[in-house]
């Protein structure tokens, strides 16, 4: 992977929103999805996120790697919860409707299944939105977005710099590791820990030393072109907000408000259909 962004350049209404809008919406949306276990809202968010995903013209093949990674994580999360607290749903919802006994405390209850359903819905409500952000935000716009939501531009720019130099460092790492393997460094997992640490040092030390040279060049180049001169700077890739941006942010703020309101109405984060 070239960097954390997996930008897919295929114009869509989602692409047209500014990076800052998408970042704000992502944050509001995830807070909304995270704060509540209200199934009705989670179903709504899930359906809406799928619609948005379709609207963005991102294909499943563009994101299959990320999706399978997250799906595996989701399964693991659910399995572990069941293994460590199979009666969590019963505690939460205050009733027990057993369906099947697996022996000992491992009794499958409707409450537990309902809790897992909510958990899965949370994943489904957020993952498409995260993918949307990752695939429709031009990495060049990202630093400008961070700056716009109030993060200092020197800090925001360091993110852009990381995006710029990570591929270079990966390439450098690859080259160094090849040359060191030729000198007999073993990279296989068969080695014991001490040997593996030694091998890692044989690659990391040259990597760090050659990166240090690089840092000096970069910081000189930046200073020579006025970086850090003023309190503010403009962004070539920054775009002004348009009505659609405002609309999107207001809508996501309403979602968060709805989540909070439901939590108040439900008297907690859980909506209980068993009562």
């Amino acid at each position: 992977m070239r960097n954390i962004f997996n930008y897919v350049d295929r114009p869509s209404p989602i692409h047209r929103l500014t990076g800052a809008t998408k970042l704000v919406c992502l944050l509001l949306w995830s807070f909304a999805a995270m704060s509540t276990y209200d199934t009705r809202l989670l179903v709504f968010l899930t359906l809406l996120s799928l619609v948005l995903f379709a609207l963005s013209r991102i294909r499943f093949s563009d994101v299959s790697f990320l999706v399978s990674f997250m799906a595996a994580f989701m399964v693991l999360n659910n399995v572990l919860i069941f293994v460590f607290s199979p009666q969590h749903g019963v505690t939460l919802y205050g009733s027990s409707h057993p369906l099947l006994s697996l022996g000992g405390q491992y009794v499958i209850t409707r409450e537990q299944l309902f809790y897992h359903l909510n958990l899965v819905l949370k994943y489904f409500a957020t993952i498409p939105i995260v993918l949307l952000f990752v695939c429709t935000t031009n990495p060049s716009e990202f630093a400008a977005s961070l700056n716009r939501i109030g993060i200092k531009y020197t800090v925001a720019y360091s993110v852009a710099l990381a995006l710029r130099y990570i591929p270079d460092i990966q390439k450098n790492y690859h080259e160094i590791s090849q040359a060191q393997q030729a000198r007999g460094i073993e990279m296989s997992r068969k080695q014991n820990l001490v040997k593996r640490l030694k091998s890692a040092a044989a690659i990391l030390i040259p990597l760090i030393l050659s990166s240090m040279d690089r840092i000096e060049v970069v910081s000189n180049a930046m200073e020579l072109r006025g970086f850090g001169k003023g309190k503010k700077r403009t962004w070539y890739m920054g775009r002004p907000f348009r009505p659609a941006d405002i609309l999107a942010m207001v809508f996501c703020a309403l979602l968060l408000a709805a989540a909070i309101a439901l939590n108040v109405l439900n008297g907690g984060r859980f909506w209980n259909p068993f009562r």
Binding site: R225, G226, R233
Partner: peptide, 27 residues
């Protein structure tokens, strides 16, 4: 500078050329 790769700061050509102007708050 001598190292034309190291001094390439922007993610793209346009951003790199714009770098000094951005720092000057050109609109």
């Amino acid at each position: 500078l001598q190292d034309s790769d190291g001094q390439f700061i922007g993610l793209t050509v346009a951003e790199d050329i714009a770098f000094a102007l951005e720092n000057d708050c050109v609109q």
